[in-house]
Amino acid sequence: MRSPLRGEISLKGKISPGQVVVCSLDNVGILVGKVNEITPRGILVDFMVRESRREKVAARLDWHAAHAVRAAQLRRAPRIVPLHPAVEIKLAETVTFIGTILDISLSGAAIVLRPNPGLFVGTLLRVAGRYATVVRAIEDGVAVQFVEPFSTDAFDRWVKP
């Protein structure tokens, strides 16, 4: 038996209440539901989920919602230019690059690399002693997100990743 599970989705395009939607969500899977309501932020959907899967899907959706809030809070964190911007970047623990931190926040940094090796989005690397993932390319370098963000009490202009 399937029971409804409610969620809010941001969606572009024309959609109306009662319309069936199919959503593929990372770490959740494919969910089928009916549009319940259209809101300024998106749409409310009643997902039809088997009772045996309902708790697991609800837990994953809750995790995604909490993660989105946490990520938004981290992005609002101040960005600073550290007093010592030179940094060593290691790829696969064997290839080393020298970089310059343009700015750094609790959750990530923008780093110029010379020469720029053209690292791909998703590449795991080590910025000094802190592991990070490349999230986008910037001019002459990369923007990275730290696997473990800094704590606010350990973050000031003297910070070293």
Results as ranks from 00 to 15, higher is better:
109 A>C: 07
44 L>P: 00
90 K>V: 05
57 V>Y: 01
104 I>K: 12
85 P>V: 07
18 G>D: 09
80 I>C: 13
22 V>D: 01
136 R>Y: 08
78 P>Q: 07
17 P>N: 12
104 I>H: 08
75 R>M: 02
84 H>Q: 14
125 L>T: 05
124 L>F: 05
35 V>C: 07
18 G>P: 03
52 S>G: 03
135 V>C: 06
60 R>P: 02
42 G>D: 14
56 K>L: 04
69 V>N: 02
33 G>F: 01
117 P>R: 09
134 V>W: 03
64 H>S: 02
135 V>D: 03
130 R>N: 09
115 P>G: 09
38 I>E: 10
82 P>T: 12
31 L>I: 03
40 P>Y: 14
96 T>Q: 13
82 P>V: 10
127 V>D: 08
128 A>C: 05
58 A>M: 11
130 R>H: 10
121 V>W: 06
83 L>S: 11
51 E>C: 04
118 G>A: 10
103 D>I: 10
81 V>R: 14
40 P>Q: 12
90 K>F: 04
19 Q>V: 06
75 R>K: 11
109 A>V: 12
22 V>G: 09
52 S>Q: 11
103 D>E: 15
45 V>S: 03
53 R>A: 08
53 R>G: 00
119 L>I: 05
128 A>T: 10
74 L>K: 08
62 D>F: 08
72 A>L: 07
80 I>L: 11
111 I>V: 14
19 Q>C: 07
36 N>I: 13
70 R>A: 14
52 S>E: 09
63 W>V: 04
129 G>K: 13
46 D>F: 14
123 T>G: 03
85 P>Y: 04
44 L>Q: 08
74 L>H: 09
77 A>L: 04
17 P>R: 06
56 K>R: 06
93 E>D: 13
43 I>E: 00
20 V>H: 08
127 V>N: 04
127 V>S: 02
16 S>H: 04
67 H>L: 05
20 V>T: 12
39 T>D: 08
21 V>D: 01
73 Q>M: 12
116 N>P: 02
94 T>H: 09
65 A>I: 03
65 A>V: 15
132 A>C: 11
54 R>V: 02
120 F>L: 12
121 V>R: 14
30 I>L: 13
87 V>I: 15
59 A>G: 08
95 V>R: 14
24 S>W: 02
110 A>Q: 09
34 K>E: 14
104 I>F: 12
77 A>D: 06
92 A>Y: 07
33 G>N: 09
96 T>C: 08
55 E>H: 04
84 H>P: 00
87 V>T: 11
87 V>W: 00
67 H>N: 07
66 A>Y: 01
134 V>H: 05
134 V>M: 01
